[in-house]
Amino acid sequence: MTTDTLLTVADFSVVYDVEPPVEAVSHVSLELRRGEILGLAGESGCGKTTLAYGIQRLLKPPAVITSGSAVFHDESGEDVDINSLTIDEMRAFRWNKVSMVFQGAMNSLNPVARVGDQLDDVFTTHRPSLKKAERTDEGKRLLDLVGVGRDRYRSYPHELSGGMRQRVMIAMAMALKPQLMIMDEPTTALDVLVQREILIQISQLREQLGFSVIFITHDLPLLLEISDRIAVMKDGKIVELAPAATIYRQAEHEYTRRLLGSFPSLTGDRGDFIRGGQHEEGDQ
C-alpha cells in the first residue's frame, strides 16, 4: 500500500444554524491515505454522518460549514479544494472522484426502474461519450464484480434480496472508479451472514482497484476487523485516531474504552455484562 495522502481534512467544523446553534462537527482534522480503509465510529448524533456529508458538500441548510477545508489529492497530482469548487465542477467531481453508499442504501434504489437502467443513468450523466452498448456492457460487468450477476441487469429492485440491493448500490458507487468511497452504515440492516459476504467483497475490491474507504458505523467490533485505522467520534470531535490494533489493545481515550466495553465479546469473557444493578449508564 502506498502511504501518500488522498484526502486532507483540516480544522473542519459544521454548525446547524438553529436556535441555539449546534456544532455537529467541531474542528476535525484527519488525513486519509490512498488505499486505506478508515473506520469512523461513534454513536447516533456524534457527527459522523455530518462529517462525511460535509466533506462532499452534501449538507443542506441549516447546516453550515463554518471553518476548515477538505483537500482531495487527485492521482493526477492535482490538489482539489472541495469547498472552492463551482457548482459545475462539484457536479463533475462527485461520483467521479468520491462516491457514497448511503445509509439505508438498499432502500434508495428507484422501485419502478430496472437495476440496469439505474446503472445506465450513471454513465449517461458522467460519461456521455459512451455508446449504449458500452454502457450496458459496463453495467453488467459491475453487477458481476459485486457478485449480483449480470443476469439481474433487467431485474427490478423488489426482485432482489436486501443484500443484493446493497451490492447494486456498491456497484453504482464503483461505476466511475472513484478514488474514495464513503460508506455510511452499509451493512447495518443486513444479517450477519450477508454482512460478512459484503465485507469480504469490499476488502477484495479494495485490493483489486485500490480505492480508499471511509466506513461509518457504530459497530466497533466490525470496524476493528476491517479497518486499517479507526477514528472515534464523540460530540463532533475525533477523540482518538489510531490503527485498529492499537484501538483494540490500548485505546487511550476513556470514551473509546467505554464504547469497546459496550460490546460483549463473542468468545471471550463476559466483560461489562450482567453485573446486576450497578449499571447506570448515561441515558439522556
Binding site: Q195, E207, D219, P221, E225, Y248, S265, L266, T267
Partner: peptide, 25 residues
C-alpha cells in the same frame, strides 16, 4: 458455525498469529 464465524469477533481477529483475516497489501 457459519453464524458464529460471520459475527465480528475482534478477540479472535487480533489473537490470530497469522494476522488479520482480510488480506493486506
Amino acid at each position: 458455525r457459519a453464524l458464529r464465524d460471520a459475527s465480528p469477533d475482534p478477540d479472535k481477529h487480533f489473537a490470530d498469529p497469522a494476522g488479520p483475516a482480510t488480506p493486506r497489501s
